[in-house]
């Protein structure tokens, strides 16, 4: 049954009183607390009351007393409330995303700083340390991104708002940039010591990681402190 069909069972003009809860449609006509299609002067027959039951002094078990007469189409939009409850609890307990994002953030800042020191001092150990720092960040970005997508799904139902669009956009940019740095450095081990356009690009990308991380942190903060 569709939502507009459900609305026809309003309890008026001798019609039965139907309500829906979590995708199931119940006939509550026998209840004395539903008069002329109205319950406690608040709730109306023919409506979905999934989000209203938590405000009621009784629990959902009260519906067991009534006959289920159908299923509301598109019920999935209501079922998610409880389907993800245990996952939400798990997320709240371990909060993996805020925990994991700090590793790549710190390592990318460190990588840029070490590369900067290499460019000034020409000490090769700074260059190696910068590369390993960026390599570490690149590897840790993967669980950070996965946990971020999981958080977006479990807490925000994968709803694309401007914040999440930007988070996804800049995460993709950062992933591309760090992979570019790592792959280039693997293929051309003396890339930092060369004096050509590729070496310049390599350095620019390393330093460009920093503002991108800032932007990602800014949007992450907006989710928490909006």
């Amino acid at each position: 049954m569709k939502k507009d069909e459900l609305q026809q069972y309003s309890g008026k003009e001798g019609k039965p009183i139907y309500i829906s809860y979590k995708g199931k449609i119940y006939d509550v006509s026998k209840s004395k607390l539903w008069k002329d299609g109205v319950h406690m002067n608040i709730h109306r027959a023919g409506e979905d009351l999934t989000n209203d039951l938590s405000e009621a002094p009784h629990g959902e078990e009260i519906l067991d007393k009534f006959e289920q007469v159908g299923i509301l189409e598109n019920e999935s939009e209501y079922l998610y409330i409880d389907n993800k409850e245990s996952l939400r609890d798990l997320y709240r307990k371990f909060h993996p995303h805020p925990t994991l994002v700090h590793f790549p953030i710190a390592a990318l800042f460190l990588g840029a700083l070490l590369q900067f020191l290499f460019l000034i001092t020409k000490t090769s150990s700074f260059e190696s340390a910068a590369f390993y720092s960026i390599l570490f960040a690149t590897v840790f970005q993967i669980p950070a991104v996965i946990s971020g997508i999981f958080s977006w799904w479990v807490n925000y139902d994968s709803t694309l708002t401007s914040i999440f669009k930007n988070k996804l956009r800049y995460s993709a940019i950062l992933l591309c940039m760090t992979f570019f740095v790592v792959i280039i450095r693997f293929l051309i081990s003396d890339i930092s010591f060369r004096d050509d356009i590729l070496s310049l690009t390599y350095n620019i990308v390393i330093f460009f990681n920093v503002p991108v991380v800032f932007i990602l942190g800014f949007y992450g903060g907006k989710i928490t402190w909006h």
């Binding site: 939400r88 709240r92 925000y156 709803t159 708002t161 401007s162 989710i223 909006h226």
Partner: peptide
């Protein structure tokens, strides 16, 4: 509408966290 959705969307996990 998108801005309003964002505000409401971001508020829900906070309410749940407060409940817990």
């Amino acid at each position: 509408l998108e801005e309003m959705i964002e505000v409401v969307l971001l508020s829900i996990p906070r309410e749940i966290a407060s409940q817990k």
